[in-house]
Structure formats: structure tokens, C-alpha cells
Amino acid sequence: MSHPAPYPVRLADEITRQLGQLADHLAQLPPHQAAQVIARVLDPETGVLGGITHLVATGSVFAKDQAERGALPPEVWLALGRASNELHDISLDLDEHKDTLQHVGTQPATIAATTPAPAPLVVRRHR
């Protein structure tokens, strides 16, 4: 007889499933609604990206404790720490575009009288 997965494992599976559903919906939304969803997902404080960053940082603390006890190789802790730092940096990079996404998300769904000009997709990053 198989044992049911503990609640946190089921919760992780459910969140993963719902993220897949959200991605499927996002692909079909009109631009203004897609921008609203993306802005919420990317919010570093209350969004999915911020939550995942916090989760990975918490996993890094766990892995550090286990590595110090010899239960995990130190490379696991280092990898989780790097991932946490990278996610944090990504959140900061994306946060500067949050207002733009929110602005696009509040625009009416009607087609503007003038078509926006396409922008070149090669842009230099600044920090």
C-alpha cells in the first residue's frame, strides 16, 4: 500500500500545477490582461517570483544546516544560495519595469488610432 504524500509535498505539486495553468491562460489573454498578470507575478514583495525567491532562500538555510551536519554535500547549499541570489537579482532587474507593465495593464482594450511602432529588441542593460 502506498503512503500518501505529506501535505507540503502535495502543496508543492498543487502550486506547480496551478503555475502551469496560469502560463496556459497567460498565453491566451489579451495584451492588457497579460500585462496585469505579469506585473502581479513579478512583484518582488507579493508576487510569485518573490515567493519563489523566498522559498529558495529558505531552502538554502535548510541546506546550510544539513551541510554543516554532514547530511548534504556543501555543493547543494552553495547551489541553493547562488540560485537565491540570482533570483533576487532578477527580481530587482524586473522590478524597474513593474510600473510600465502596470500602466499597460490599465490601458483600455480598444485599439489605438495609431499603431505603435515596433521597437528594436537589442537593448543594452544598465545597472
Score class of each variant (00 low, 15 high):
residue 54 H to W: 08
residue 108 P to N: 08
residue 46 T to M: 04
residue 118 P to S: 07
residue 122 V to K: 10
residue 66 Q to W: 07
residue 117 A to F: 06
residue 11 L to D: 05
residue 76 V to W: 02
residue 23 A to N: 12
residue 102 Q to A: 14
residue 36 Q to H: 06
residue 28 Q to L: 12
residue 89 D to H: 15
residue 10 R to Q: 11
residue 33 Q to L: 14
residue 87 L to I: 02
residue 35 A to T: 08
residue 72 L to V: 03
residue 109 A to C: 13
residue 42 L to F: 07
residue 14 E to M: 04
residue 7 Y to F: 10
residue 21 Q to A: 12
residue 35 A to S: 06
residue 42 L to A: 03
residue 34 A to T: 04
residue 124 R to A: 02
residue 45 E to G: 15
residue 80 L to K: 03
residue 51 G to A: 05
residue 20 G to W: 03
residue 82 R to N: 10
residue 93 D to T: 08
residue 121 L to K: 11
residue 75 E to L: 11
residue 101 L to G: 06
residue 4 P to F: 07
residue 109 A to N: 10
residue 14 E to P: 00
residue 58 T to H: 05
residue 122 V to N: 11
residue 17 R to E: 08
residue 65 D to K: 15
residue 64 K to L: 15
residue 2 S to H: 10
residue 54 H to C: 03
residue 7 Y to H: 10
residue 8 P to T: 12
residue 67 A to H: 06
residue 73 P to H: 11
residue 16 T to G: 15
residue 76 V to G: 02
residue 10 R to I: 01
residue 95 D to F: 12
residue 34 A to D: 02
residue 94 L to P: 05
residue 89 D to N: 15
residue 119 A to C: 02
residue 50 G to M: 04
residue 115 T to A: 13
residue 32 H to C: 04
residue 99 D to G: 14
residue 49 L to P: 00
residue 62 F to W: 02
residue 38 I to D: 00
residue 16 T to N: 12
residue 36 Q to W: 00
residue 38 I to H: 00
residue 30 P to L: 07
residue 87 L to D: 03
residue 46 T to D: 04
residue 69 R to N: 00
residue 27 A to E: 11
residue 24 D to T: 13
residue 125 R to M: 14
residue 52 I to D: 05
residue 112 A to R: 08
residue 59 G to S: 12
residue 96 E to V: 15
residue 51 G to W: 10
residue 27 A to H: 06
residue 63 A to N: 07
residue 79 A to P: 05
residue 27 A to P: 04
residue 6 P to V: 13
residue 21 Q to S: 11
residue 71 A to T: 10
residue 95 D to N: 12
residue 95 D to S: 15
residue 72 L to T: 01
residue 101 L to C: 10
residue 77 W to E: 15
residue 53 T to A: 12
residue 114 T to V: 09
residue 99 D to F: 09
residue 26 L to W: 02
residue 20 G to Q: 14
residue 80 L to C: 05
residue 5 A to Q: 11
residue 83 A to S: 10
residue 42 L to N: 03
residue 85 N to W: 03
residue 12 A to M: 04
residue 49 L to G: 00
residue 49 L to D: 00
residue 30 P to V: 06
residue 124 R to V: 01
residue 125 R to P: 09
residue 117 A to C: 01
residue 36 Q to L: 09
residue 72 L to Y: 12
residue 105 G to S: 02
residue 38 I to P: 00
residue 123 V to A: 09
residue 52 I to C: 06
residue 30 P to D: 05
residue 63 A to Y: 00
residue 8 P to K: 09
residue 54 H to Q: 10
residue 91 S to C: 13
residue 4 P to C: 02
residue 5 A to M: 10
residue 54 H to A: 14
residue 3 H to N: 09
residue 64 K to M: 08
residue 112 A to D: 11
residue 17 R to Y: 04
